[in-house]
Design a binder for these strands. Structure first.
Length: 211
DNA sequence: TCATTAACACGGG
DNA sequence: CCCGTGTTAATGA
């Protein structure tokens, strides 16, 4: 059973026959905030299409430190899943529900079949690759070339952009985890941003005051 | 110079 | 009382 949400969003992207097939083979799955959707070393058997909510994609080092790679929004899919499906490999990333999330799960076998059968599917998959690759490049650039204050601003701006509100409900510790730094640094940088009238600070929330 | 770690005080829920 | 926040001091890259 497919929701109207799904119809509305993907209608413009996929042709009717493909929509029909998705209807038949896909199934809906929901996650609560904080749920792990895909973990590192998981075998990927389904390809998720994001209907609603936001998913955080992150990487982890040997010591268990997490690093945010990018967020997925409505209409996106996980590029890691795509590579895993093709190579029949394990996930290199962890996907966590940033908000409540609604997904359509597509069995991986359908991936190949549809690549040949539907132009729109092919275009969608390639476009997803392209988009995610650019996001990762952007993140790499940030880490390599930007100081933590710029990275923080970019992080805040991005959060504002995807959540459609200028209030970011995070603790300093959560932000520090995402950017793989310490809370002391985030607290100090946020404080200077506040003095510069770029943000307003409250417990558990940050109001972003630019544009 | 700037980040990290540990430690501490403050205050709201 | 617990947790998030703001700050400092010591240490390191």
């Amino acid at each position: 059973m497919m929701t109207t949400d799904f119809q509305q969003f993907f209608q413009s992207v996929f042709e009717p026959e493909l929509l029909q097939e998705i209807n038949v083979t896909g199934f809906q799955k929901e996650f609560m905030e904080g749920d792990i959707i895909i973990d590192i070393a998981d075998n990927v058997k389904f390809m998720p299409l994001l209907i609603s909510g936001i998913i955080k994609i992150l990487r982890e080092d040997d010591d268990g430190n997490e690093l945010l790679l990018y967020f997925l929004e409505k209409g996106n899919t996980c590029a890691m899943t795509l590579t895993c499906c093709i190579g029949n490999a394990q996930s290199e990333i962890r996907a966590i529900a940033e908000t409540e999330v609604c997904l359509i799960m597509i069995p991986v076998q359908k991936m190949d079949e549809w690549m040949a059968k539907y132009k729109t599917w092919r275009a969608f998959v390639l476009q997803s690759y392209q988009n995610r690759f650019m996001e990762v490049l952007d993140t790499v650039d940030s880490i390599a070339f930007l100081n933590m204050d710029k990275r923080l601003l970019k992080y805040l701006a991005n959060k504002v952009k995807i959540s459609n509100t200028n209030i970011i409900e995070s603790t300093h510790q959560q932000i520090a985890d995402d950017l793989n730094t310490s809370r002391v640094v985030i607290s100090r940088l946020l404080k200077t941003l506040e003095k510069q009238k770029q943000v307003e600070l409250n417990r558990n929330s940050i109001k972003y005051l630019l544009h």
